[in-house]
Design a protein around this nucleic acid. Structure first.
Lengths: 202, 202
DNA sequence: ACGTTTTCTTATCTTTTGTTAACGTTTTGG
DNA sequence: CCAAAACGTTAACAAAAGATAAGAAAACGT
């Protein structure tokens, strides 16, 4: 856990700006309640069975959400740079998380603990801003998930794969294909066939 | 648009209680900013291409979310009694909605307009509560969508159908099957086959 | 550096789904 | 009340996906 650099703080502030704008005095108090952590590849950000008591903002790197079902590791979701990251339902409800979150590559993530979030919610100087910030995070996930549900209803697995590639994240080239297959809701074998189909269609 | 009965107000207050608790003075001001509307079957609550300037809470009845793609009507989602209802992304962003919302049956819905929401957000007496209320609605949709994404990844269409039936909503018996098929992400023909399979397996 | 594990592809076979069309039934609107 | 539209099921065929297994290549840990 290190102090944040001004570049990191700038990224966070820009990420929040569309929704929450702090004045200077508020910002100074806010940044006293956050920290930045460096995650090694495969290091866990959150763990199934444990309450997720923190929420993050990916400055650099990427993470993978997954759960274990019948002994198999199933990838649910990814967060890339400038995304929020959390087992947010667990963070909100205080129930144990259902999924793990791990770094896909060495990552820098700004972390706000629930305790610090609550301190800010109870600090009259920040309470109103923090309610708004909480709403922002929920809305961020909301819009992502809405898109995702819609993609399952209106697109084929092949279309979903091509759409994912269009984001141009190079980490997609490096991560195991079965993570992507899970994310798309298909088997790794099926993804391999889709990839071949795309190549030969070109 | 009618005044709300005390039973209706009680339902709303109970729906909000897990997250937002008003004191009596706050509640009196709050209820001056809301209204209840009766929707006929097929009457629109929100319309694609228009900004959704309101958010609702279903007291009685049910609604269907759908959009038109290549001339075809595709059902995305449902809200039943004691659910929130809105093209919430449009409500939040002020962008035109991408989907329609219509009543599946005669329905009573508590409506809060964006204007009244903003009046409350700017009223120091309610601002803090309203930030929290906004968060509540976002979180409601968040948890629903999270569940839904997870169901697409880990369940077969047949399992999703059986899970939907388990909710025991009788309106599921009465609405057209192709609404349900869309919602499950399959074709009406495929749903018909699944239904037959289930019957013969018994 | 080397043996193990993971990953990706390919093949085969089965199951499921999509597509289109037909047909009888039900619902709907004028 | 009647004609038109919408609906649900079924059939037939094509396309896609799941399951399983096998083999080669790459990544990993020690």
């Amino acid at each position: 856990m290190d102090a944040l650099t001004s570049a990191q703080l700038g990224a966070l502030r820009r990420g929040m700006e569309p929704y929450v704008v702090f004045n200077e005095a508020e910002w100074i108090v806010f940044i006293q309640h956050i920290s930045v952590h460096n995650f090694k590849k495969k290091q866990l950000f959150a763990e199934a069975g444990k309450v997720c008591n923190h929420v993050g903002f990916v400055l650099k790197g990427s993470v993978r959400y997954y759960h274990i079902k019948d002994g198999a590791d199933i990838t649910n979701y990814f967060s890339f740079e400038n995304d929020y990251v959390s087992s947010y339902t667990s963070f909100l409800t205080g129930e144990p998380a259902l999924n793990y979150i791990e770094a896909l590559e060495p990552s820098q993530i700004i972390v706000i603990t629930k305790k610090n979030m609550e301190l800010m919610l109870n600090n009259p100087m920040l309470a109103y801003r923090m309610e708004r910030f909480g709403r922002l995070i929920a809305e961020h996930y909301l819009i992502c998930y809405e898109d995702r549900v819609s993609s399952f209803i209106t697109q084929t697995p092949e279309e979903r794969y091509l759409k994912l590639l269009e984001t141009g994240r190079e980490v997609l080239q490096r991560m195991p294909q079965h993570y992507i297959a899970n994310f798309l809701g298909i088997t790794p074998v099926s993804l391999s066939r889709i990839r071949k189909r795309i190549l030969t269609e070109k």
